[in-house]
Design a protein around this nucleic acid. Structure first.
Lengths: 202, 202
DNA sequence: AGTGTCATCTTGTCAATGACAAGTTAGAGT
DNA sequence: ACTCTAACTTGTCATTGACAAGATGACACT
């Protein structure tokens, strides 16, 4: 509790938040444990106690990210029952939690064998899988897996390209609107005849 | 030419190849200029002369990657005239040139303002854009951009997820087959009634 | 052939970093 | 009050990226 005492009280959380801030500023490659320690006002070796090493910290950050993603996807599915909205939630998560997202899909940065991480990742996958289950069967076909991969790929690709600044400026500044416009091509009868998809009722 | 002489002769190319090998082994985060110098048998400061600094080397690597990608996409489009095959070529490029691909879409690792890089990136974008132009107009709609973003997103997302090992094992071991199965959901009349898309004649 | 020039590569150095070892503090349980 | 131990500190080392200054040799010019 007391920020000035020898024992920080909540250093683990503070370091994770500092890591998010640092990654938002300079990307995950430039992350430095010593910089995080300085931000938190502790000694350079304090992070090691909580996370072991750098990849340990990033493993914790990725785990937290997968948990947040799973929650966001479940919320969208339960609120709307619409796969499109689940996809929108996926992209919004990537944009709103950029630092988490950028670490989550970079397994070379963390320990991908960590059990807690794998469990959180599986929960995320389930969130998307249940979203695909809201589609009519005749559109998905006998095997739901390809549809699931397609849905995941399109939102994940869009989010990645958006974050990477790879998309042309004509796409606009609102990722949510752009992903709605784009996702009509998936699982729709005809591509782009109507210029806007009807908003799903809530 | 002479590998033992004071002047290496082709150090720039050798270093780029060494970087590809190193990234394939341990990912871009673990890349070390001094390790590349050791692999090439030169002094630790030799890379700086050719690339300035680490981000300079990665800028060169990304530029080379965008050029290779543009060539691969153009080749596929000219050979088949089919957008699906352009998408397959995209995924194949990512798998075959994993190191390049992993750097290309990580602008925090290199200098995204480099003119040569931007030119190469634009050429890649053009390759995909021309691929979308092979689609019938009534499927794309008045504005081709959303269709282009959708196509790019789905293949890019699939490639990224595949490389990240994020996809479930049921997807199989052949990325090309998996992307063909999946991409049927884009720009198709109905999702998955036929269980396999006909291979395009070559 | 002789000379100069300059890109190429080397050696040397410095601050920053990740990792580890060993010591210190304070809070929690008995 | 006493002990135990998690939490944190100080100190150190090898490695790295970056920079400065020097050495080498390929090539052009005469």
């Amino acid at each position: 509790m007391n920020r000035r005492s020898y024992h920080h009280g909540d250093l683990r959380r503070t370091l994770l938040s500092a890591a998010v801030a640092a990654i938002n500023e300079s990307g995950p490659a430039a992350l430095s444990l010593r910089d995080l320690a300085r931000r938190a006002g502790v000694s350079h070796a304090a992070p090691a106690h909580h996370f072991g090493d750098k990849s340990g910290l990033l493993t914790a950050l990725a785990t937290e990210g997968f948990d947040l993603l799973a929650a966001a996807l479940s919320e969208a599915r339960e609120r709307t029952g619409d796969l499109l909205e689940v996809g929108v939630a996926y992209v919004r998560f990537a944009v709103d939690h950029r630092a988490h997202f950028e670490v989550m899909f970079r397994p070379d940065l963390y320990d991908a064998d960590d059990p807690a991480l794998q469990a959180a990742r599986d929960r995320s996958g389930e969130g998307l899988s249940l979203g695909v289950a809201t589609l009519p069967k005749e559109r998905v076909g006998g095997d739901a897996l390809p549809a699931q991969i397609a849905a995941w790929s399109i939102v994940h690709g869009f989010a990645t390209l958006w974050l990477g600044g790879a998309l042309p400026p004509e796409v606009g500044t609102d990722p949510e609107a752009a992903v709605r416009t784009m996702a009509r091509f998936l699982f729709s009868d005809r591509g782009a005849t109507s210029s806007s998809a009807p908003a799903s009722p809530r």
